[in-house]
Design a protein around this nucleic acid. Sequence first.
DNA 1: GCCCTATACCTGGCATTACCGGGTATAGTC
DNA 2: GACTATACCCGGTAATGCCAGGTATAGGGC
Lengths: 111, 111
Amino acid sequence: MSADDRVTTNLRKGVLEFCVLAHIQAGDAYGFELARVLEADGLIAGEGTLYPLLTRLRSSGLVETRWVESDAGRPRKYYTLTPVGVAQLEAFQRAWIPLRDAVDQTMRRSS
Amino acid sequence: MSADDRVTTNLRKGVLEFCVLAHIQAGDAYGFELARVLEADGLIAGEGTLYPLLTRLRSSGLVETRWVESDAGRPRKYYTLTPVGVAQLEAFQRAWIPLRDAVDQTMRRSS
DNA sequence: GCCCTATACCTGGCATTACCGGGTATAGTC
DNA sequence: GACTATACCCGGTAATGCCAGGTATAGGGC
């Protein structure tokens, strides 16, 4: 693993969970599609990261799931936010803004 | 630990290391003072987080240290960036911008 | 002399989180 | 019948921040 990869990996910690919740709130989604979107956004390195996270969100009561049959391939597991999930997403948004600004300001002061 | 604290704790993962490097680059600093500044910025919860991090930075060759006697209390351990540390800080700045923007955009789409 | 506070550094054990490599099952194509 | 695409999942690993504690020096008040 390169030094740059390590930086990115650690940056993703803590934000990925809420980007997933945000995507689910924006419109119901299933795991495999989410994985593709998040990879394109540079938020995960592979689907192996996403499925354990989704399982955790479910067992914490932040999302609910339902199986939907697909035209091709295996059935899909769709995710929906629970009220607890919505509250957590809002808590994240409250925490994200000041932390983002603190980092931006710190970086500006150094360069 | 409250739910909001958990959010903040995980958000800090990955950014703290580089905020420390940035502060050191902005002007030599010692641990105890850094801890106060970072706590005020909401980037750490206590000094217990900072000292192990500084030790790690040193053993990775990102910073160098020197002891300086103080007027009052124990001597202070001052930190300076090495060329490797400067390069790491630049690597972080390259990785931070796109990730920050990806999160901002994801949050905007959800609300 | 003795306690208390402030300064300043450090450690061990813990929980959380993302990564990697692999595995399973269904449907369509050549 | 082999191959590819879709779609889900698990076990073990490394990293990072937190907490609760510990150590040492200097000065003020009694």
